[in-house]
C-alpha cells in the first residue's frame, strides 16, 4: 500500500507544505507588520493619531478578512496568474495565502502592540522619543512575546489554508489528501496526511510558544 512511490510523494508533499507555509507567513508579515504598526499608532489614542487613515485601513482589512479563503483563492486567480504565470502548484498558492493572511496578521500585530503599557510609551515620549523610535525601540520590543505567539497562530492558520488549496491543485499535503483520499477513496493516505498536518501544526505551535516564553523577561 505505502510503496516507495507513495512515501516519496508524501515526503515531497511535506516539503511543499512547509515551503508554502513558511514563505507565505514571511510575506504576510512583510505586509502585515507595517500595516499593524500603522493601525496601532494612527488610532485616536495612538502615538501618531490620524483617525481618517485608521478608519480607511480598518475598512479595507475587514473587507479582505470577510471573504472566505476558498472564494478568495478562486476570485484572485487572474491576479495570481499575472504574478507567478500559473495558477497551479505550491508557488502559485503562495499568492492567495499571502492575500488572505496579511490582513489577519495586521490585526494580530495591532492587538499585540496595543497591549504595551501606556505608561511606558508616555515615559518614552517624555524622554523625547520620535514616533519612529517609539515604534522600533518600545512598541515592537515590548510586545515581542505577544508578537511571537501571534506568529505561531498565524503560521498554523496559513498551514490550514494551504491544505485547503489542495482542492484547486495547490500542491503539498492538501493536494495529496484530496487526490488520493477524496477522489480515489484511499482512506489510509487520507489518514496519514491528516496525521502529518496535525504533527506539523503541533510542532509550529509548540516552537512558537516556547520562543515566546523564553523571550519574555516579565516572568522570570
Amino acid at each position: 500500500m505505502f510503496d516507495t512511490g507513495m512515501l516519496e510523494l508524501l515526503g515531497k508533499g511535506i516539503l511543499e507544505t512547509l515551503y508554502m507555509t513558511v514563505v507565505s507567513t514571511a510575506l504576510a508579515y512583510v505586509f502585515g507588520l507595517p500595516l499593524g504598526v500603522v493601525l496601532c499608532i494612527t488610532d485616536k489614542n495612538g502615538v501618531f493619531p490620524i483617525p481618517a487613515v485608521n478608519k480607511l485601513l480598518g475598512f479595507i482589512i475587514n473587507f479582505l478578512r470577510s471573504v472566505p479563503f476558498l472564494i478568495l483563492l478562486v476570485f484572485i486567480l487572474p491576479f495570481t496568474r499575472a504574478i507567478v504565470g500559473t495558477t497551479i502548484g505550491s508557488t502559485a498558492t503562495i499568492v492567495p495565502l499571502v492575500v488572505a493572511a496579511f490582513p489577519f496578521v495586521a490585526r494580530m500585530v495591532e492587538s499585540s502592540l496595543k497591549e504595551v503599557d501606556g505608561g511606558v510609551i508616555e515615559a518614552a515620549q517624555s524622554m523625547g522619543s520620535s514616533t519612529f523610535q517609539i515604534v522600533y525601540k518600545v512598541l515592537i520590543p515590548e510586545a515581542k512575546p505577544s508578537l511571537i505567539v501571534g506568529a505561531a497562530i498565524a503560521i498554523t492558520t496559513i498551514l490550514g489554508h494551504s491544505a485547503m488549496a489542495g482542492f484547486v491543485g495547490g500542491g503539498g499535503l492538501g493536494t495529496i489528501a484530496v487526490n488520493y483520499g477524496y477522489y480515489r477513496y484511499q482512506r489510509d493516505v487520507m489518514t496519514v496526511t491528516v496525521i502529518l498536518l496535525v504533527i506539523i501544526v503541533q510542532v509550529f505551535q509548540e516552537i512558537g510558544m516556547r520562543i515566546a516564553r523564553l523571550s519574555d523577561k516579565r516572568i522570570k
Binding site: 503599557d117 505608561g119 511606558v120 508616555e122 515615559a123 518600545v138 520590543p141 515590548e142 515581542k144 512575546p145 523571550s215 519574555d216 523577561k217 516579565r218
Partner: peptide, 9 residues
C-alpha cells in the same frame, strides 16, 4: 512616574 514605567523587556 508613580508606576515606574520601565521597559519590561
Amino acid at each position: 512616574f508613580q508606576s515606574f514605567n520601565l521597559l519590561q523587556q
